[in-house]
Structure formats: structure tokens, C-alpha cells
Write a protein that binds this DNA or RNA. Structure first.
Lengths: 141, 141
DNA sequence: GTGATATAATCCATACCTGAACTAAATGGC
DNA sequence: GCCATTTAGTTCAGGTATGGATTATATCAC
């Protein structure tokens, strides 16, 4: 999807898709993907369970996406859906023991990949990178 | 899909998806998307036509993706498929007049968006950004 | 309490992407 | 010339994402 390559926009988009492909290929070895790992991360952060709508908010995506993502995680055995006793409309995603295990291994792989990919940057460069990314996000009016 | 946010990896991936969403939302107003614009760009660069396989190479994606992307561009009326007189296996994607028009408008929108998003960076920052992105791509062994 | 409105999740259609299986055509070795 | 291999493109199944329509439940206004 390279378009200009003197374009800062496409430089960032292309680099990101290369990084993403690299990490995805490592995660694949344990049957995970970045979206699945991100969902497990948010569940872990929230104490291992969340209503689907809140999970969508934290993943910055629409609810219909979470419905499908949880379908796949459920069929992987990493998460289950349970009822919310206080609201019968709501369904709560709960991590299973297998989910906790997959999350732990997934994070190890992610951190290892991150070290491979960013290890060549100096502390100074990493710092500048963070600041540049933050500045770009701010540009969204 | 934010995961750590002290992670340089996720800082880059998250910024990229924000930038992408911004540009996509602008392109949407003329019925284009980034993948469609990228295809039109590669066709333009190549003199307005390319065999599908070569287009896949230039877009760094698999051929089945190009088959579908050209299906959509064809049904949008921006591209047509023609036969290759020298190789009956091959199909050549050719831009239509509507395709040229959409490409021109799409590039204007892309450049405008790029200016909005990156305009706040100094020349120095933009330069460093390019160098950092290049260094990350190199890290792919 | 009942009826209008909000909200939670799902379903469906569609876009984009991959990899594997398949078809048709070209090509190289003999 | 003929067969094995390679190449070009499509098809199909599945993952990830969106947005609109739908269903069920909750809540608010009265």
C-alpha cells in the first residue's frame, strides 16, 4: 500500500504495517493475533472481565466488532460470555484459565518482538518517536 | 487496539490507525478509500495500466487481494480489465477517464489531509520522523 | 403504570486482507 | 511435439473492521 514514500503520512502507515506484520507473524505461532491479544490485555487490565460494550470502548472500536472478536476468542476457549445479574441486556466477557495463559505467552512474544524491532533505537530516538507520535495524535482536531 | 501506550510499538500502531482513519474519512466523501487510491496511484505511475500480478507486487499484497480490489474499482467504473495480447493468462487493469478524475481528486484530498496532520511538525521533526520510520523498516531482518 | 426513548448486544451487508486450492496458459527439457 | 513445471488470475474460507437494522431490556416522564 505504498503510495508516495516521500509522504510522511505513507512513511508512517507503511512502517506501521510492516511492524504489525512482524508481530502478527510471531503471535501466530501460539494461535493469537494482535486484536485478540489487545482484547485479552483489556480484560486483564479490568480484572479479567468486562461487559462487551465497555470492551469496545477500551479497544476503540464498534460493538459489532467485539461481538465477532469474542465469538472467535470463545471458540478458541480463551474467554466465555456470562450474564450480568444487574442488567439482562448485558453480556460479560470473562477470561478463562487458557485465556490467562495465552495472554502471558502473547505478551512475552510481543515484548520480544518489540525489542527486536525497536532495540536498535537509542533511548533518545525512542523518546523522540514517542513525542512525534503523540504530536500526530493531537493533530486530530 | 491500544495495548500498552508506553510501548513504542503500540504508540506507532495507534498513531498510524488514527492517521489512517482521518484520511479515510476525507476520502470517503468522494467514494474512495486508501487501498483504492493506492491502486490508482500505482496505475498512474505505471502509465495508467498494469497486469494484476505486477499491481500486487507494487502494492505489496497478495494477488487475491488485487483481484477483489480491482473488482470493486471496476464496479465503481474507475478501472477496466483488458486482455494482454502477448499472454492469454494475464489481465491488464486500465484506468478509465473516471478513474483519472477520481485519482486527481483523491490525491488533492490526501495532500490536504497530510498538511492538516503533519503541518504542525517542523521541517526538522518531519525529517527525523522519516529517518525513524526508515530505521524501523530496516529492522525487519 | 405506561409509553417514548436509551442502551446492550447481535445480525447482516460490505470492505479489506491473507493463504490454500484451483484453472488455464506458457515454457523448458527431452 | 509432449510432459512437467511455473506463472497469472480467480475462488473460497476465514480474520478483522465498519455501519445500519433489529431485538431485548432498562429507564425516564408523566
Amino acid at each position: 500500500m505504498a503510495v508516495t514514500e516521500k509522504s510522511a503520512l505513507f512513511a508512517v502507515l507503511h512502517a506501521a504495517s510492516t511492524l504489525e506484520a512482524h508481530v502478527e507473524s510471531k503471535l501466530e505461532t501460539i494461535g493469537l493475533s494482535l486484536p485478540k491479544l489487545a482484547a485479552l490485555y483489556q480484560l486483564t487490565q479490568a480484572g479479567e472481565s468486562l461487559p462487551l460494550g465497555q470492551l469496545a470502548d477500551r479497544l476503540s472500536c464498534v460493538k459489532s466488532n467485539v461481538t465477532q472478536l469474542i465469538d472467535r476468542l470463545e471458540s478458541d476457549g480463551l474467554v466465555t460470555r456470562t450474564a450480568d445479574p444487574n442488567d439482562r441486556r448485558s453480556r460479560i466477557a470473562v477470561m478463562t484459565a487458557a485465556g490467562r495463559k495465552a495472554f502471558t505467552r502473547g505478551m512475552e512474544i510481543q515484548q520480544h518482538a518489540e525489542h527486536e524491532l525497536f532495540g536498535a533505537l537509542t533511548a533518545d530516538e525512542t523518546d523522540r518517536l514517542h513525542r512525534l507520535m503523540a504530536k500526530l495524535e493531537k493533530q486530530e482536531q
